[in-house]
Design a protein around this nucleic acid. Structure first.
Lengths: 227, 227
DNA sequence: CCAAAAGTGTTATGACTACACCCATGA
DNA sequence: TCATGGGTGTAGTCATAACACTTTTGG
């Protein structure tokens, strides 16, 4: 890794994971401290790491979600985003990175996973500091793709737990799209498309009318315009 | 490259180019003879090759379109498709491949480029023989993506030359989608979206009413449902 | 009874679909 | 004058967007 571009023989393949969650009407992204002087002294970045020759990119992503993002990967949904191959994206040498978008419901995170530490934390995705490598553009591409997917697929299902209220789901979509959605139209659409179905339970113990719980009818992500 | 998976240290990064064109109501894909015994004796595959450490994936694609597909890359549109990282996709060792979709209008091809040779030819994309590596699935993903893009973007602009008749454009879309499109609705939509505009010239010398020529209003690909 | 969020229906507008005939040209 | 593909309009249906009030609960 000390080689310069001119004498290295191979490119190195890495995977980067843009892991999102939504809480309090804010889209959060998982950051970790990169801290590699001289280029990135104490600079944060998206969790990532090399893909070993014996694992697929997907296997690497699962491993990295756990090893580098500190999150139980079995609860995380992920999909390939884009492969970044800028020659100088890593000043130490040539590293091509296959970036993934990953999603987890805030409610599915353990107490530890929710709690920020010095080296690993949740940052508001629109208030990130300057990130290491080309991670600013990776993040920006990821947010664009997430917005597209929220409108055109049922990917929002990966940001809620098994049962949820429609208001909660709506707030998540509004947060990601940064715009208000009409409550009645939102419900009508999801119900008429039969992507969610009403459950028998309500969310009680709130100091207002209890909301009915819903669940997605399928764990598969469907392509259709949902919003 | 003789190493087995167990003792290689690095993954190798390649780019594969799924280059499409449309002629005679048929979608064609550019194939080349791989011919690497013992695994692929005389087997065809999608043109591709290694990404050098000093070039981006996009630079590699431009080079490979010329070197491996035998087509003048300056006339080709391309965009990233997906990165394939199956551990055994190349039996000789670990090769991760960044696949690209590429498009060129048949009319933009030179005589040589249109003419098939023993090692490089245009094959009907739905009648390909068994391909080398995982290229069958690369091709299948590429066709799916192309169909999506034809419906949702102005990518069809990259399959026609500067001026074209609307019937010609319609046939191209019909070919890719494998379904008939209503002529009047197709025209209305493209004109009302202002993605194409009428030119002053007609296509004369045909033994029927001459068709007006149109051109796309922008060379940028726009996201919107066009069909 | 008050505060807070849940839940629900209608109407107007615009988009999409389906559909058939006349036109301009070359042979 | 015939064959060939070019070119055009309308009406019905469906999806979308805009909009406000009543309900249920806890405190």
């Amino acid at each position: 890794m000390k080689n310069t571009k001119d004498n290295i023989k191979f490119s190195i393949i890495a995977a980067d994971v843009v892991l999102f969650t939504v809480r309090d009407n804010t889209l959060f992204v998982r950051l970790s401290k990169v801290d590699r002087p001289p280029h990135f002294p104490g600079i944060p970045g998206i969790p990532g790491g090399l893909i070993s020759p014996t694992e697929t990119a997907e296997e690497a992503v699962e491993r990295l979600i756990s090893e580098k993002a500190g999150i139980d990967s079995s609860k995380v949904y992920y999909e390939q985003l884009y492969t970044f191959s800028g020659v100088n994206r890593d000043p130490r040498g040539r590293v091509v990175s296959v970036a993934y978008i990953a999603l987890i419901p805030w409610e599915a995170l353990s107490r530890n996973e929710q709690t920020d530490t010095k080296n690993l934390w949740w940052e508001s995705a629109h208030k990130t500091p300057k990130l290491a490598y080309d991670h600013d553009s990776v993040l920006s591409v990821a947010i664009k793709r997430l917005r597209f997917q929220i409108v055109h697929t049922t990917i929002s299902s990966k940001l809620v737990t098994k049962e949820f209220t429609l208001t909660h789901l709506e707030k998540i979509c509004e947060t990601i799209l940064a715009k208000q959605i009409d409550k009645r139209n939102f419900r009508k659409k999801l119900l008429s498309l039969k992507v969610v179905k009403k459950q028998d339970r309500q969310l009680r113990g709130v100091k207002h009318r209890p909301a009915n719980l819903y669940s997605f009818t399928s764990s598969k992500i469907k392509d259709l315009t949902v919003i």
